[in-house]
Amino acid sequence: MEEEEIEVSKPKYTDEEKHRIFNQEFMPQIDSMYNFAYRLTNDEDDANDLLQDTYMKAFRFINSFQQGTNAKAWLFRILKNSFINDYRKKSKEPSKIDYQEVETVYNSNEDAEVESTTDLRIEAVQDLIGDEVATALNSLPVDFRTVIILCDIEGFTYEEMAKILDIPIGTVRSRLHRARNLLKEKLRSYAKSMGYKELR
Rank of each mutant, 00 (worst) to 15 (best):
T135F: 04
F36V: 00
K96F: 00
T14Q: 10
Y55K: 01
I21S: 07
E93Q: 13
M56W: 08
E7M: 09
K18M: 12
R180C: 06
E4N: 11
G130D: 12
L137D: 00
A191I: 08
S174K: 13
A112N: 09
S95Q: 09
F76P: 04
T41Q: 05
T41D: 04
E185Q: 11
K96M: 05
N42Y: 08
L128N: 14
E103R: 09
D86N: 15
K184S: 12
Y190E: 09
T104C: 08
S116H: 05
E110M: 11
S139D: 14
Y55Q: 03
F65R: 03
E93P: 05
N109A: 12
N109Y: 14
V142P: 06
N35W: 05
L165P: 01
K96S: 04
N81L: 06
A134W: 00
C151V: 10
K80T: 08
E25A: 07
P168H: 07
I78T: 03
K184L: 12
K197D: 15
R175L: 06
A112K: 08
F156K: 00
K184E: 15
N35T: 14
K57E: 05
I169D: 04
A136F: 06
I169G: 03
S91K: 02
T41K: 04
E101P: 02
L128D: 07
I149C: 03
Y13V: 01
D31K: 07
S116V: 04
T146R: 01
R178Q: 10
K186G: 01
Q67P: 08
I97P: 09
Q52F: 00
N63M: 11
R200T: 14
N35L: 10
N48L: 13
A162C: 11
D143S: 12
